[in-house]
């Protein structure tokens, strides 16, 4: 009888701790860190071409994936939250690969060629392929 009580108490105790840990984890689960992920290596033009030719298949290949992109800087700006945004040119003057950087990529100017990692969020036709959480590689 006493042993039975002990086992029950122990089980309830473990359950409580597990529950608390779960709540703690839900509230403090870290955001994804793309710097620790392997990226799919692509050029800006290749990424745009795959979205332009078949958006659905490009979505299944690249959406929410870490991308390691190499491209030529078209322009650099800051968004309304103060983060750096770099547009990379494609062969269509209206379409850019638009990347918002999580960490400052430093001084960049139009014409520079860089490689960075980020998460692809998708394609907006006639405007841009969007990547965010960018971190500079080289």
């Amino acid at each position: 009888m006493k042993k039975w009580m002990k086992v029950l108490l122990l089980a309830v105790g473990i359950g409580l701790i597990a529950g608390l840990l779960l709540v703690y984890w839900i509230f403090n689960k870290p955001h994804r860190d793309v710097a620790k992920e392997m990226g799919i290596a692509l050029s800006a033009q290749q990424l745009y071409d795959s979205f332009r030719t078949n958006e659905a298949s490009a979505n299944s290949q690249y959406l929410d994936k870490a991308i390691e992109l190499t491209g030529t800087v078209a322009d650099v700006s800051t968004n309304q939250e103060g983060q750096k945004v770099v547009n990379f040119s494609t062969n269509d003057p209206l379409v850019m690969i638009n990347c918002t950087f999580k960490t400052d990529p430093g001084n960049l100017k139009a014409g520079d060629s860089i490689t960075f990692k980020g998460i692809c969020t998708g394609y907006i036709p006639d405007a841009n392929v969007v990547i965010n959480e960018g971190v500079l590689i080289k």
């Binding site: 839900i26 509230f27 689960k29 870290p30 955001h31 994804r32 959406l63 929410d64 998460i119 969020t121 998708g122 394609y123 907006i124 405007a127 969007v130 965010n132």
Partner: peptide, 16 residues
């Protein structure tokens, strides 16, 4: 206006 749903950022990763 056009936006990508995966571009929405929440404070809590679990909510996102």
């Amino acid at each position: 206006f056009s936006l990508l749903i995966k571009g929405f950022k929440f404070k809590m990763a679990e909510m996102q």
